[in-house]
Computed example of a mutant assay.
Amino acid sequence: MSRIEQCKLIELPKISDPRGNLSFIEGGRHIPFEIKRVFYLYDVPTEEGRGAHAHRKLHQFLICLSGSFDVLLDDGEGKRSVHLNRPWKGLHIPPMIWASEVNFDPGSVCLVLASDFYKENDYIRDYEEFLRLAATK
């Protein structure tokens, strides 16, 4: 069972240049898993949220490429909020953490790196089911 203390902010390499900065990510080196899927969220209305689910086995790494948003984390016992607003810092979310992305600034872009391909049966979308599963781990 994962705990919210395992949700870590990770600073990525940042190469500064007068022409603009560059950051990069190498799976298994900068983040603690190999990357199998990449997706991104954008044009999220400020009053809307995304996520609001947990994964049974999947690890995720969230990066705010532009703008800012908050990630609400819940392990069934404790809760924590993390503000993302820098493209060279990301948040690792291990399995069995309920996560919601909220408070999107207009124009925000959230990049998500995932440890596996999309598998609907890995998602826990019902919060009460998540709490039951978290209590048994």
Rank of each mutant, 00 (worst) to 15 (best):
I4D: 01
Q6M: 14
Q6I: 06
K8H: 12
L9K: 07
I10T: 13
L12Q: 11
L12I: 14
P13L: 14
I15S: 05
D17V: 12
D17L: 08
N21G: 13
S23H: 10
F24I: 13
I31C: 08
P32W: 05
F33K: 00
E34R: 03
I35Q: 05
I35N: 05
I35L: 09
V38I: 15
F39Y: 15
D43C: 01
D43L: 06
T46N: 05
T46W: 04
E47D: 11
E48H: 04
G51H: 01
G51Y: 04
G51D: 04
H53E: 10
H53R: 03
K57H: 14
H59E: 11
Q60R: 02
F61G: 01
F61A: 01
I63F: 09
L65T: 07
S66D: 14
D70K: 03
L73K: 03
D74S: 02
D75P: 00
D75K: 05
G76S: 11
R80Y: 12
R80F: 06
R80E: 15
L84C: 10
L84Y: 12
L84V: 13
L84N: 05
N85R: 11
R86S: 15
R86Y: 14
P87F: 15
W88R: 00
G90R: 08
H92S: 04
I93A: 09
I93D: 09
P95S: 10
W98T: 11
S100K: 10
E101I: 06
N103E: 13
F104V: 12
C110D: 11
A114T: 08
D116K: 01
F117L: 13
F117A: 08
D122I: 14
Y123E: 07
I124E: 09
D126I: 06
Y127K: 08
Y127L: 12
E128S: 08
E129K: 06
F130N: 05
L131M: 13
A135F: 01
A135H: 05
K137V: 14
